[in-house]
């Protein structure tokens, strides 16, 4: 498979994975990333093996993009012992540091300072690994972001702040949740490099994120990337949708997978049959993923006291 098709394939896998999860009656409480796949995939294209990614609670797409094993991830989300954390972390708190996914922390804004701590360890350790922290526009109202931007800048930490602006914090529009004109302006206040990128365009994501990653990796300190994306589902698998059907239908035209598929078709890099095959591949892979997860049991109740201390 050529590199040109890799981002689309990865986005399709995330979509298929999340759709399959959402279709399960036992899916639990999930925050899906439909419409935001290009942010996770574009960013992950420019992160390296020695880097770490941390996220808020919308973690599934980013974890898959970073390379967490899909079977172990599904097992984790369904509460099975084959999960990356024996099924006890779930979507809000999963981690798989060996895959470069240091973890989610689903208290909004709470993982930003944690990420700076991981970046401090990187800096003191002397390697060239960097840390990226992915948070939503909802977290841009939380104090931890500003405290951490300040310290990360003062200490020249190798930390990339990535704000996935999906336009909605549960029901609150971005304009009502942060007074800044653009969210990247938050980074400007600390005189660090900032950029605003179309988070629906996976290649633009990779290009702009790559420029900032290079800055961070060179030891010059943090940078701030605002990605403009869309959430095409409701906030969570239990939350009411606040937008009308018509509005959602319009937004679906901007689906990053549709956009990338159309671009590849236009540029003759793929055929309709090729796209169909890619979708079928993803579906087959998810069948295997589900089979793996379902084959794994729930933990025994006796495990409840394991790993407390």
């Amino acid at each position: 498979m050529s590199d040109a098709l890799l981002p689309l394939r990865r986005m399709m896998l995330i979509r298929a994975f999340e759709d399959a999860l959402a279709a399960r009656k036992d899916h639990g409480f999930q925050l899906l990333s439909t419409g935001e796949e290009a942010v996770a995939v574009g960013l992950s294209l420019v992160l390296e093996d020695g880097d770490q990614l941390l996220t808020g609670g919308r973690s599934i797409g980013p974890a898959l993009a970073r390379g967490v094993d899909p079977g172990k991830l599904m097992a984790e989300l369904l509460g099975r012992v084959a999960g990356v954390n024996r099924g006890r972390a779930g979507r809000g708190h999963l981690s798989d540091q060996e895959s470069g996914f240091f973890g989610a922390h689903a208290v909004v804004g709470g993982n930003i300072s944690i990420a700076a701590g991981v970046a401090l360890e990187r800096k003191l350790g002397g390697g060239n690994g960097i840390v990226a922290i992915l948070f939503g526009d909802g977290a841009s109202g939380a104090g931890g972001l500003y405290e951490t931007l300040n310290i990360a800048t003062l200490w020249h930490l190798p930390l990339l702040f990535v704000c996935n602006n999906n336009q909605l914090s549960v029901s609150t529009p971005r304009e009502a949740s942060n007074a800044a004109k653009e969210l990247r302006d938050i980074g400007r206040a600390f005189a660090i490099p900032t950029a605003l990128v179309d988070g629906l365009d996976v290649w633009a994501m990779a290009k702009v994120a790559g420029e900032l990653v290079e800055h961070v990796r060179s030891g010059k300190g943090p940078a701030f990337l605002e990605c403009s994306s869309l959430r095409l589902r409701s906030h969570s698998t239990t939350a009411r949708e606040t937008r009308s059907r018509d509005e959602l239908a319009q937004l679906h035209k901007l689906c990053p997978i549709k956009l990338e598929s159309a671009r590849l078709l236009t540029e003759d890099q793929i055929t309709n049959a090729g796209l169909e095959e890619m979708r079928a591949d993803a579906a087959r892979q998810i069948e295997d993923v589900m089979a793996f997860a379902d084959a794994s049991p729930y933990p025994e109740p006796e495990e409840v006291l394991a790993h407390v201390e």
Binding site: F102, I112, S113, G117, L120, E121, T148
Partner: peptide, 19 residues
């Protein structure tokens, strides 16, 4: 700086990463 939330968070993250 005067930033207890971030100070504890950074310490926790650094601890998780091996310090």
């Amino acid at each position: 700086p005067v930033a207890e939330a971030a100070a504890v968070g950074i310490a926790a993250g650094a601890a998780a990463a091996g310090l």
